[in-house]
Amino acid sequence: MTNVEPDLDTVPETVGAPGAPHEIHVELGDRTNHRAPSAEPDGVIELRDLEVFYDKFRAVSGVNLVFGSKEITALIGPSGCGKSTVLRCLNRMNDLVPGAHVMGDVRFHGVDMYDASVDVIEVRRRIGMVFQKPNPFPKSIYDNVAYGPRVTGMKPKNMDDVVEQALHGAALWDEVKDKLKQSAYGLSGGQQQRLCIARTIATSPEVILMDEPCSALDPIATAKIEDLMVDLAKTYTIIIVTHNMQQAARVSYRTAFFTAAADEHGQRTGRLVEFDSTSKIFGNPSDKRTEAYITGRFG
């Protein structure tokens, strides 16, 4: 994949023009048909004029987004457009990057998550993250799931129940219930990723962030994760970064398209181009850059 902003003067005039024939070959799946998104998301997390800097480099600028409760939102766009940077802002993972700082508002139920009084550990408990590659700890399956509740100070009456419920929630219990004391490294890649999801939901979050969670998995394991995401969205708000257009179309309720624009000095900054229902983004996008990306004209 290239990281080149298209020359919009070369994009055919039919792209994005009202009534023009589209050449979008991404078919919307039926996984999310159990519930259509509301007209407007209800604002579990809101971004207002978000800018992210790494030292003096401005990685992302002017992002305004609202994430709805118990919806799946997909962040798409070419490499280097700031999707993962924005995702990491949502539970302050960028705090761990030297030189990173955030400007603008990032609010969770109206609370400024970057206020000095906010407990970062509590933020990350309530807004969990699943990373691109499965990253189980060098512990047993049981201890991987129990890790989050232990380190965050949760005191459940019965840790066994917490572990079992989390593994059920990640659709993994039936596959591992007889080997909970075995190393997590003995699981397949897809099982390890579902274990990481179980580890995340064991702390009872409200939001789950997923940064390309299927990029290292085969198609069968990917399908299981996608089915799991749709099931989890009945309980959790899910925000996913993906380069897989089919995946975004299959599982998400809303889609945000990002790209990177160069300034007069050649510095490329990620910007939000368009945010709408997934059916609108993939069926009749408002911006010709969105359609050019979805149809493979750049990216």
Results as ranks from 00 to 15, higher is better:
Val123Gln: 01
Arg31Phe: 11
Tyr185Val: 08
Ser140Arg: 05
Thr32Asp: 04
Val26His: 06
Thr200Ala: 15
Arg194Phe: 09
Leu209Asp: 05
Asp119Val: 00
Pro21Asp: 06
Leu195Ser: 08
Ile281Pro: 07
Ser277Arg: 15
Thr255Ile: 02
Gly299Val: 05
Glu40Asn: 13
Ile121Thr: 12
Gly266His: 12
Asp211Trp: 10
Val111Lys: 11
Ala100Trp: 09
Glu122Arg: 02
His265Phe: 14
Ile281Asn: 03
Val151Pro: 01
Thr73Asn: 03
Phe131Glu: 08
His109Val: 04
Met93Asn: 08
Thr242Glu: 04
Ile294Asp: 08
Arg289Tyr: 05
Pro6Thr: 01
Ile76Gln: 10
Val207Ile: 11
Ala116Gln: 14
Ser117Asp: 13
Lys181Ile: 07
Thr255Asp: 05
Tyr185Thr: 13
Asp160Trp: 14
Lys224Ser: 08
Val130Trp: 01
Asn244Tyr: 03
Val86Asn: 14
Ala260Lys: 12
Val118Lys: 00
Val102Pro: 05
Ser117Gln: 12
Met229Gln: 09
Gly169Arg: 14
Thr290Asn: 03
Gly19Leu: 01
Arg88Cys: 06
Arg297Thr: 03
Lys155Gly: 04
Glu291Tyr: 00
Ala184Gln: 03
Gly82Pro: 12
His22Gln: 12
Val123Met: 01
Met93Val: 14
Lys179Cys: 12
Met93Trp: 06
Thr278Cys: 06
Arg31Cys: 02
Val66Ile: 15
Met1Cys: 07
Leu232Ser: 00
Ala166Thr: 07
Ile72Cys: 04
His34Asn: 14
Glu206Gln: 11
Val63Cys: 12
Asp7Gly: 01
Ala198Ile: 02
Thr73Leu: 02
Thr73Ala: 06
Arg124Phe: 05
Ile201Val: 13
Gly283Cys: 04
Arg297Met: 14
Arg150Asp: 11
Ile76Met: 13
Tyr142Leu: 14
Asn144Gly: 07
Leu28Ser: 03
Thr203Phe: 10
Leu28Arg: 09
Arg126His: 11
Ala39Phe: 10
Asp105Gln: 13
Ile281Glu: 04
Ile121Lys: 06
Gln193Gly: 04
His109Gln: 11
Asn91Phe: 01
Thr259Met: 04
Thr73Glu: 05
Glu226Tyr: 05
Ile294Ala: 08
Thr237Tyr: 02
Ser140Val: 12
Lys133Leu: 12
Gly62Pro: 00
Thr2Ile: 10
Ala100Cys: 15
Leu96Trp: 09
Tyr236Thr: 03
Arg150Tyr: 02
Asn135Pro: 02
Val163Ala: 06
Ile127Pro: 01
Glu175Lys: 15
Gly190Arg: 01
Asp119Leu: 01
Pro18Ala: 08
Arg126Cys: 02
Thr200Asn: 11
Met129Arg: 03
Phe298Arg: 00
Glu226Ser: 02
Phe137Ala: 00
Ile240Gly: 07
Arg58Val: 09
Gly16His: 11
Arg31Trp: 10
Gly62Ala: 14
Glu274Gln: 09
Ala166Arg: 06
Val273Tyr: 04
Pro41Trp: 08
Asn135Val: 02
Thr255Pro: 03
Pro98Gly: 07
Arg48His: 13
Cys214Ser: 13
Ile225Thr: 00
Gly43Lys: 02
